[in-house]
Write a protein that binds this DNA or RNA. Structure first.
Length: 343
DNA sequence: ATTAGGG
DNA sequence: CCCTAAT
């Protein structure tokens, strides 16, 4: 682990950078370079010299202003359809090849609770049989490259775009890093060590899964038109800092006020959950949440658990759940694979 | 604090 | 999603 100390330095630098960025925003000055590199919004005129100095970073970072090469390194997202190009986009020089090992065996294939479908009501509209529904063994293999998934393609178009140019890929990776660092500075709920751990985990994820795993979700949730039924969508449970930004202990009043939230899971959220499960294993909801994947950063560990339960049910019985659910079929194939079910 | 499961 | 029991 030679690069570790380096990463610590880098992270601390970024943390400082974040607070500087915030204060700049507060003053309404000089964010153009940051905007350029992180895809953030331009504020207005800025002072060249200050920005120069700022971008120099602390001593020792003169040429390391922007994403750690490791973060910038991109691989095709797990769920993306096979892309013709993206030949190698090799990581810029930097050694990004350690620990490819730990991915294979250990995690995610352990005690997996099979949610036994408790006597479902309706007779089967469809069943998971190989013949009639295409559960061939290779359809399971091709999970990560199923091009039939038009919905996903749409859903991921954003992140795919961002993998077009290396610059934008960097932006995406940078945003991911910023998210971690930001959480660290803001909420204090992550110690620097925890933040670093999260950062490293996410780096691993980015490296093995591709930048798609890190690209933030731009509100692509399938929120129907007239469906904003009163509930403030933003931060359903982010009232005060806690394990993941605020565990809600609602008062009786609050509970009555908001009867029941309905925040349908977007496809990218679902994808992020599956990525997290791949990474941490089934049942490790808190760990997954600590990865701080942007797409599911607002979902509590319990939310993750519930979603997994639903996915698991759905994967075992397509008749389960809402008829209009948008979970792509190959996601369910993936779930089945995790569950050790025939695909 | 986390997780599983019922509602 | 919410709530609670059990770790």
């Amino acid at each position: 682990m030679q690069g570790f100390g380096e990463d610590v330095l880098f992270l601390s630098f970024v943390v400082g950078w974040c607070s500087e960025y915030r204060s700049r925003c507060a003053k309404g000055v000089g964010t153009s370079l940051l905007q350029r590199s992180a895809g953030l919004q331009v504020v207005k005129g800025f002072d060249q010299q200050h920005e120069q100095a700022f971008c120099q970073g602390p001593p020792g970072f003169s040429s390391r202003v922007l994403p750690h090469p490791a973060w910038a390194a991109g691989l095709p997202p797990l769920f993306a359809p096979p892309s013709q190009e993206q030949p190698d986009q090799a990581s810029p020089g930097h050694s990004v090849q350690a620990s490819q090992t730990q991915r294979s065996g250990s995690v995610s294939r352990r005690k997996v609770g099979l949610y036994q479908p408790p006597r479902r009501r309706t007779p089967a509209r469809r069943s998971w049989t190989r013949e009639e529904d295409g559960w061939s063994s290779d359809s399971c293999e091709s999970f990560s490259e199923d091009s039939r998934a038009g919905t996903v393609q749409e859903d991921l178009s954003e992140s795919n775009h961002s993998s077009q140019g290396s610059q934008q890929t960097s932006s995406s990776a940078l945003e991911a890093l910023l998210a971690v660092a930001d959480t660290c500075t803001n909420t204090g709920c992550l110690s620097p060590e925890e933040a670093l751990k999260a950062a490293r985990q996410r780096y691993e994820l980015a490296r093995t899964r591709g930048p798609g795993a890190l690209s933030a979700e731009q509100d692509d949730s399938p929120r129907r038109a007239g469906e904003m039924s009163g509930t403030p969508r933003a931060s359903p449970r982010a009232s005060r800092p806690g394990a993941f930004g605020g565990v809600s202990k609602l008062t009786a009043q609050q509970r009555r006020a908001r009867h029941r939230c309905n925040n349908p899971w977007s496809i990218s959220e679902t994808q992020a959950l599956l990525e997290g499960i791949e990474h941490c294993g089934v049942g490790k909801w808190a760990d997954i949440q600590r990865l701080r994947l942007p797409a599911i950063i607002k979902r509590s560990p319990v939310d993750l658990k519930d979603k997994w339960r639903n996915l698991s049910r759905l994967a075992q019985d397509p008749n389960t759940g809402r008829a209009n659910n948008t979970v792509p079929r190959h996601f369910l194939l993936h779930v089945r694979r995790i569950l050790g079910l025939p695909c």
